[in-house]
């Protein structure tokens, strides 16, 4: 019997069916994004209904190697084939990055909480992404743009290490070309061929200030934890209410259901309670060395 697919409706969303059994998905497309990073599109078995909410992740199992949590980076409006943008950082991700169309990978999920797009309605939305952190935010951007009239100003601040490490560069150009979205991009290091902004992502805020009204803003942040901490400070300094700042955390997720304890973060399990958290929940934990 086909295992029951996880429900995409609840938040956090956990599989209600057999969440322990990886379903064999087939790689149907592969695109190299930036050095060491590819996007894989995975097709489920025929008749397996897969849906997800922006911000959720799947556990991807390279048979015989290891299972790793990978954010879903595609459009929730067209959830299959499922897009995952993967950066090579270890053995399992190296194996994933090397997969080719026709290869099979085990998929469990989707797991975890989602970006609260329903709470963003009527608000300005500030999205701050760093490096590969743009991948878990891309589904939220797709959703925002699909239902664009429901939101106030939409502003994306994106920082990467260098111009050649800008993820989804063509899409950034396309978004920048829209008249209903502001896209500000920076790199930590540039050269003479780069005519854009140089500086860490927080240095974009003075430019971005004119595009959002802090009291009426909801913010979504994803990137290295240090980047998120400093971004939260910038937003708080500007008067964005702490309850409307959301961050996506990364830990060593294994079971995806808050049972194994690998991804424990203070009183939370990132896989079950997160990865998307309201900052207010984490305010006392953020930056504590022991956690």
């Amino acid at each position: 019997m086909m295992p029951t697919p996880p429900s995409p409706a609840a938040q956090p969303t956990g599989p209600t069916g057999n969440a322990w059994v990886p379903i064999p998905f087939t790689v149907v497309r592969r695109r190299r994004e930036i050095p060491g990073t590819v996007t894989l599109w995975l097709a489920p078995p025929e008749g397996y209904p897969f849906a997800f909410r922006p911000g959720q992740f799947n556990m991807l199992y390279v048979f015989g190697v290891k299972e790793v949590p990978i954010s879903i980076s595609g459009d929730p409006g067209t959830p299959v084939p499922v897009a995952h943008t993967i950066r090579q950082v270890g053995m399992a991700t190296q194996a994933l990055v090397n997969l080719k169309p026709g290869d099979v990978v085990g998929v469990r999920g989707p797991f975890g909480s989602a970006w609260p797009l329903e709470h963003a309605r009527g608000h300005d939305v500030v999205i701050v992404a760093g490096g590969i952190g743009l991948a878990p935010l891309r589904p939220a951007i797709y959703s925002l743009l699909r239902h664009r009239p429901q939101y106030g100003n939409v502003v994306l601040l994106y920082g990467a290490r260098s111009p050649r490490e800008l993820l989804y560069a063509r899409e950034l150009e396309r978004w920048r070309g829209r008249f209903d979205m502001e896209v500000l991009v920076t790199v930590d290091r540039g050269d003479r061929t780069w005519h854009g902004h140089v500086g860490v992502v927080t240095t974009l805020f003075p430019q971005a200030d004119v595009f959002f009204s802090p009291q009426n803003t909801i913010a979504f942040i994803c990137g290295p934890e240090i980047m998120m901490r400093f971004t939260v400070r910038e937003l708080l300094d500007r008067g964005v209410p702490p309850e409307r700042i959301f961050v996506s955390l990364e830990r060593n997720m294994h079971c995806g259901q808050g049972l194994c304890g690998h991804c424990q973060y203070g009183p939370f399990f990132i896989c079950k309670d997160g990865p998307v958290f309201p900052y207010q929940k984490l305010a006392t934990l953020f930056g504590i060395r022991e956690i």
């Binding site: 992740f57 790793v68 949590p69 990978i70 954010s71 993967i86 950066r87 090579q88 950082v89 991700t93 760093g130 490096g131 590969i132 952190g133 991948a135 878990p136 920082g159 990467a160 290490r161 490490e165 930590d188 290091r189 500086g199 860490v200 927080t202 240095t203 994803c222 990137g223 290295p224 240090i226 980047m227 400093f230 996506s248 990364e250 990865p275």
Partner: peptide, 19 residues
């Protein structure tokens, strides 16, 4: 100085966000 310190960390270099 703050911005330069963050640049020095090279925060996107190794494990910049969930892969």
């Amino acid at each position: 100085v703050h911005a330069t310190r963050l640049q020095l960390i090279d925060m996107y270099a190794v494990k910049g966000g969930r892969p």
